[in-house]
């Protein structure tokens, strides 16, 4: 007995989710960040962010289809982290790494925070 492991599968699935997001297909939540709106799939947000996990695991938020984040959250930082969730690539420009790190702290994405911190120290 054994199995055939398709080594590209995780990446192929995530790429399809990102195609669905860019075409707004099966997206089930709109995130408002300081006036900007982002469509996404709750399942991806919950899988990647401790903050969204705690929001959407709460039964009273089960049917939430729109959520506004704290105004202190930087929309550019959020956009970078949302792209990271759907691509595994974290866009790190010197000018935005601090905003990205602070947003990752807010979204409870500890591993990204650590990576941003190491990048800043280097």
């Amino acid at each position: 007995d054994g199995c055939i492991q398709f080594t590209r599968h995780a990446g192929d699935v995530l790429l399809n989710f990102n195609r669905l997001r860019s075409r707004n297909i099966l997206t089930d939540v709109a995130i408002q960040v300081d006036g900007q709106h982002f469509h996404a799939h709750k399942a991806i947000l919950v899988a990647c962010s401790g903050f969204f996990y705690s929001v959407f695991m709460d039964p009273k938020n089960a049917n939430l289809s729109a959520i506004s984040l704290d105004p202190k959250v930087d929309p550019k930082g959020f956009s970078i982290l949302l792209d990271f969730m759907y691509t595994s690539c974290l866009d790190l420009k010197d000018s935005l790494v601090l905003a990205t790190m602070n947003t990752a702290i807010y979204l409870q994405m500890e591993h990204v925070v650590d990576t941003c911190h190491r990048f800043i120290k280097s």
Binding site: G2, C3, N16, L20, R23
Partner: peptide, 21 residues
Amino acid sequence: YEGVNTIKEMGRSIHEIPRQD
């Protein structure tokens, strides 16, 4: 799946959703 009888398939595993229809 790092079992003893694992064959690794490097090719695409599923269909690709197009950027637009």
